[in-house]
Amino acid sequence: MVTNKFDYIRAESVDDAITLMVKHGMDAKLLAGGHSLIPAMKLRLNAPGVLIDIRKIQELRYIKKDGNKLVIGAGATHHDIATSELAHQTYSMLPEAADLIGDQQVRNIGTIGGSLAHADPAADWPGVMIAAGASVHLKGPDGERSVPAEDFFTGFYMTELQENELLTAISIPLPPEGTRSAYKKFMQPASRFAIVGAAAAVTVKGGKIERVKVGINGLADAAFAAGNIEKALVGKEPTEANIDAAVEGTGADAMVMADHFASEEYRLHLAKVYAKRALMAATQ
């Protein structure tokens, strides 16, 4: 329950945070909600020398519509999103997923930016962001850039974030009319992280699926887009039989994780079940 010693600095702005990161280098860690970092530090699994607190940077905490996009500041808490009418109107899976993260205390403090940057493969946001076709906005000493969510998660706790870069926002293109979405999660019963989570966004036009995107988290070392489902369903009617056929093979070429709660085989099975549940909820 006692962390190692460290220095604490509260960043006043995004630029301030970047300057601080450059100054303190590898020894520093950003502190957003801290609900992954602080427990690890208490167990001494991690011991950064400097914590740069970005939780109070107001310019990071917003949810707004910007043209044909929904933009969520990295500092928006899970609770902010769970209760955002704007988020709900865009994709109902956004508040749906937010509400399934941790517990009310965690949702009050934990931020979407922190969660995405941390890239826990069992976290809920990565799959949802992939299904939403989101882009992740990054800012570093050399300027800003954005990366599609689908490419952002590169491995176990690994992302495209480079040294001294800060995740500032997520932008989500507003979906075409006729789009519905859902996020379904099979929880690890102790931690309530996802053993498998499936997010589905489906656009149906004239009784046929025009566009479908499914993001899967928990299964492999990074969240990924289930391309097999997309291929199988576009142009088809959203029937249970078609969905059943489409989810076959989900995760087949992923490096599937295993632990004492769920073996590889079981996780693969759950991926199919939950992809189907998300697709059914978004279409039926």
Binding site: P121, A122, G155, F156, Y157, S191, F193, D221, D259
Partner: peptide
């Protein structure tokens, strides 16, 4: 030790990523 006791959830992921690397 601590790794065995608290790291189960993440171990196979760590192994996968390390072998990928």
């Amino acid at each position: 030790g601590l790794l065995a006791r608290t790291g189960q959830r993440v171990l196979s992921g760590v192994a996968n990523t390390l072998s990928k690397q």
